[in-house]
Amino acid sequence: MTVVERTAPTPWHRHADGTLWTRHSPAEVEWTEDGMPLTGLSAPEREALTAHHEAGHAVVGAAHGRAPLYVSLDGEDGTPDDAGGFTAWRVDTLLTKTPWVQLAWILAAGERAADRWLRDSGLWTPARAWCMEWASSDDRDMASAAARRLRHPFDITWGVGDQPHDWSVICAQTDQHLNIRWNTVTTVAQILLDQRRIDADQLMSLTG
């Protein structure tokens, strides 16, 4: 298997509102009425991107004993959601009983799987990569909140060194977890595209 290095050198960039650090420069993109960045992808491409994002979370989670309850291409209430899919976790277990670095890998796996799918599909651009980081801000916020809840003596840093809590290090490690499970990620993503939802039992049969 060819391992492709997908991390980028520092410095990272801070969003204008000060709430988000990204590897890629903030892009000049159009925005939807509900505040989502437009990536210039077709509707099927956007759905495939979402499927790989959610599959990344699910497969890396299952590999570390934290398989989700289900994964869906629709919103949390089961209705079609163009803004993205939904992965349903056992939140109490995920956030309080998972070692922080494993939790960070699980949470980073969505954005890293999406980035890889864009590259593998010949659709990657810096603007789309920035959009994927922006769209994953909730996952990053969850990782930060978990570090505080678990009383870790650090804050997440963003591309400033090789500390284990720097998000660039987390992303590089997550890429390795995805590399060895990429065939499973693409299989789960395709099933999501075909049937829109995967429950825990089906996911475990795929991830072993």
Rank of each mutant, 00 (worst) to 15 (best):
D74I: 01
A114H: 02
V101K: 15
D74H: 14
L107Y: 00
W124Y: 06
M132A: 14
P99K: 06
T79Y: 12
S121Y: 07
L69T: 15
L94R: 12
Q102F: 07
L107A: 09
A129K: 03
Y70D: 03
A104Q: 07
G65Q: 10
G65A: 11
D81A: 12
A109M: 08
T87M: 13
E76C: 13
D120H: 09
R66H: 13
V101D: 10
W100P: 05
R119K: 14
H64Y: 15
V91K: 14
D120E: 15
G61R: 02
R66T: 03
H64M: 14
T96P: 01
D115Y: 04
C131F: 05
T125S: 15
A109Y: 01
S72N: 00
R119M: 14
A58R: 02
Q102N: 06
P68A: 03
K97M: 15
G122D: 05
R128F: 11
R112A: 12
A83Q: 10
I106K: 01
I106V: 11
G122P: 00
L118F: 10
P80V: 02
G65L: 07
R116D: 00
C131L: 03
A108E: 05
S121M: 10
L69D: 07
A88G: 11
Y70C: 13
G84F: 11
T93F: 03
D82L: 12
R119E: 13
D81K: 07
V101A: 12
P99G: 09
V71I: 14
T98I: 06
W117S: 08
T96I: 00
K97P: 09
P99A: 02
A127K: 09
W89T: 06
K97S: 15
L94S: 06
D77W: 14
A127G: 14
M132P: 02
D120F: 06
C131N: 05
Y70P: 06
Q102R: 13
T125G: 09
S121G: 04
D115H: 12
V91W: 11
A83I: 05
A104D: 02
W105N: 06
P80R: 09
R119Y: 14
M132W: 01
A114V: 07
D77I: 08
G78E: 09
E111D: 08
H57Q: 15
G110A: 04
R116A: 01
G75E: 07
G78I: 09
H57C: 11
T96V: 08
A104H: 03
A129T: 00
W124M: 12
A114P: 04
L103W: 08
G85Q: 04
A88E: 10
G84P: 00
D77A: 13
P126L: 09
L95T: 08
T79W: 08
A63G: 10
L94M: 13
D81L: 04
L73Q: 06
R128K: 13
D74E: 15
A63N: 03
A88I: 02
L94V: 01
L95V: 11
A129Y: 00
G85F: 08
